[in-house]
């Protein structure tokens, strides 16, 4: 059952990214580029996504566990640390440079051409070295 749910969730996520225009990097960069030809689409995507997701979080209060029997995630941490800020600065900078982030790069993989594959390869490489960087950060700045 978990596999069916995973595929269904992935499919809905992919369909949403595709139909919303989020695989079009011009729209993503257009949202970030307040000094250029500003494009508000991303706000509608984010706002639209928060509605069913917010309802789902509400529903978790009234259920003991997920359908699969797994416990729901614990309440979120409230610690805003260096990792969160620095990581988000790196991510945002790369996101702005080409207009791709981890979801849309996969949604566009079948039709986006070589550039999407190059970005994906570099992203995977980055994810591969990240644990080493995190390790160094935590040794330099113990929590």
């Amino acid at each position: 059952m978990r596999l069916v749910i995973s595929f269904l969730a992935g499919g809905l996520f992919g369909a949403g990214l595709h139909l919303s225009g989020m695989t079009n990097t011009a729209k993503v960069q257009g949202w970030l580029d307040v000094f250029g030809d500003w494009d508000p689409t991303l706000a509608f995507v984010m706002g639209g996504a928060m509605i069913p997701m917010g309802l789902a979080w509400l529903a978790t209060r009234y259920r003991k566990s997920a359908l699969s029997g797994t416990a729901f995630p614990p309440p979120p941490s409230t610690t805003i640390d260096m990792r969160l800020v620095l990581g988000s600065v790196f991510f945002g900078t790369g996101w702005g440079l080409v207009g791709l982030c981890p979801g849309p790069v996969l949604a566009a993989l079948s039709y986006g051409g070589a550039g999407v594959w190059i970005f994906l390869a570099a992203m995977i490489a980055g994810m591969g070295v990240a644990p080493k960087i995190i390790d160094r950060m935590e040794r330099a700045m113990p929590a």
Partner: peptide
């Protein structure tokens, strides 16, 4: 954007409530 967003959120809801 709104339609796609609703689908994305539904995907997240399915993943959370299902798994």
């Amino acid at each position: 954007g709104l339609i796609g967003g609703l689908l994305i959120g539904t995907g997240g809801a399915v993943y959370l409530l299902g798994n």
